[in-house]
Design a protein around this nucleic acid. Structure first.
Length: 110
DNA sequence: ACAATGACGCCTC
DNA sequence: AGAGGCGCCATTG
């Protein structure tokens, strides 16, 4: 990996509109990094607190959160998402409303 | 150099 | 729905 790969990931995450989410895999592709979903996870994990990067908008495939449902981190991410209007269906983000193919995203991303 | 470890994803029972 | 298995790849011990 090059230092710029990390920058590409950060950039892609920063471009996720408020109130919507993107999966790790989608971020990897949008950043031009192919199938390196795990790499995206690594970058998120290394983010210093207060970096300003909306890491909570990055979720696993299918809308699940990467953290164990009983963990504080899971609760934190879910709260952050719900605070900006993201709906949950059970323990999954409602991707029909907030996923990359949602109507609003189509307008913002083409 | 090598094995283990993840903020992943997809497929198969 | 849930559990395993495997591919993935940078980091860590």
């Amino acid at each position: 990996m090059s230092p710029s790969d990390e920058a590409k990931v950060i950039d892609a995450v920063q471009h996720i509109p408020r109130g919507s989410v993107a999966t790790y895999g989608e971020v990897a592709r949008e950043a031009g990094l192919g199938r390196r979903a795990r790499f995206v996870g690594q970058v998120m994990a290394r983010l210093p607190p207060g970096s300003g990067v909306p890491w909570h908008r990055v979720v696993c495939a299918g809308g699940r959160l990467a953290f164990p449902v009983d963990s504080p981190s899971h609760a934190r991410q879910r709260a952050a998402l719900e605070a900006e209007g993201v709906r949950f269906v059970g323990q999954r983000v409602d991707l029909d409303r907030h996923g990359r193919h949602a109507a609003l995203d189509q307008l913002l991303w083409g």
